[in-house]
Design a protein around this nucleic acid. Sequence first.
DNA 1: GCACTTCTGCTACCTAAGTCACAGAGGTTA
DNA 2: TAACCTCTGTGACTTAGGTAGCAGAAGTGC
Lengths: 241, 241
Amino acid sequence: MKPDSPFYAHTLKALRQSELFGRLDEAVIKEMLLSFLRETWSKKSIVMHPEQTIRRFYVVISGRAKMTRVNPDTGREFTLFLLEAGDGFDVVSLLDGKKHNVSVIAMDDIEVLTAPFDTIHEWIKQHPSFNREFLPYIGKLIRQLTNLASDLALLDTGTRLAKLLLRHTTKGTPYPRLRLINDLSHEELAGMIGSVRVVVSRYLQGLKKEGIVVARRGQLEVNKLQALAEKIERHLGFKDK
Amino acid sequence: MKPDSPFYAHTLKALRQSELFGRLDEAVIKEMLLSFLRETWSKKSIVMHPEQTIRRFYVVISGRAKMTRVNPDTGREFTLFLLEAGDGFDVVSLLDGKKHNVSVIAMDDIEVLTAPFDTIHEWIKQHPSFNREFLPYIGKLIRQLTNLASDLALLDTGTRLAKLLLRHTTKGTPYPRLRLINDLSHEELAGMIGSVRVVVSRYLQGLKKEGIVVARRGQLEVNKLQALAEKIERHLGFKDK
DNA sequence: GCACTTCTGCTACCTAAGTCACAGAGGTTA
DNA sequence: TAACCTCTGTGACTTAGGTAGCAGAAGTGC
């Protein structure tokens, strides 16, 4: 992407705020941005399917996307990651060069940057500072995945849902705010905790009746942050979040 | 570990055969080995608990260990990784420097090498060749975890068990061999697929009756590799293993 | 060789969480 | 504004997978 592009300024800004690029020297970021191509994808479109995982690396600039895997028998979809501005994919293929059986689907109209794997590999080699940001980012990914897996193995659906909500709630004044997932359908929420629409609906009813959440079609808010946290604590002792 | 140690030779050999160190120059391996300390741990002992994750990095030289997380309410244990010779832990804390809520427990009498995080970070910085081996290794970890999580979310217990067995079976002549997990108790196997002893026993009975596996106390073998694979295929279309 | 522990198999039972089906509310499109 | 689609709520039903408990087999330690 060239500096004279009409999108240059806000794209650069997004990179500056990202975990992967934010702490790099201005000159380095700009150099990298030169190698990136900008793409836009409309809501619900498939940004990357399994066959394409080995080609290019993507960075989300605006909007949300989900990385999913589907059970072809039942048609059930499981969301491995919710990707937002600053997130990159697919990290696995980038690391080991092999195909990865996941799809990435846009949840909003989104903007992404993309560059070939070779370019990223070159950056890792040439810019120790980039490597230094990249490694902790991968650490965060693994952390998320270990939590996801052990939650699935050890907790019931109600607790997993409560954790999902808690994780995305920020204590705001005067009210807490549910970030990033507040407008998702029950179907989507279910996909994120490895369950099914009906079951999520049921549990949400429970939370509504207790006054812990407030919901209307496509809009969810957490009302009693404390009560939500207690609900989870009672069911387990994990502190790792 | 100094070259005159009685364990030097076979430790060096183990490193040479490992994924992380195997392809490094002889001189580099030897230099690294100098910084490592050797420890031994007896079966069932806790090699590392959550509080210790931030201190040192470990590499397994011989024997097996499991990385687990426990639900304090139910006491149920879930095995995130089975670690064997060549595997390192804890990668997450190494990458982001934060505590990680996992324990590592020896499943045999084991030997490990250990070095402070700073040392490993230094290697990553100083030895591009090490970084080059390290990144794909992390890729493998993430791959394993995404599979673990999506299997838990999308597949039934029987299929997960079948996949566990298949994954550790090597086509040998004249018979296939079940590697690494052939002597584990049903309890341990259950921990690896996020289930419970009784349920695993049940499914194993089924497999025995079909002649797919042969088992006696603490000894499990796969007899009909093909049949096992078909059992899984029927239940899903994943090719990612 | 005996006592003790660990593992396996099996039965009976319970329940969380799934499927199916339908109706009405709320948005969106023509 | 009518027709359509998507989302949510709910009831009835099924079932996979869990708990509890016990007995005997197989190892282990003394």
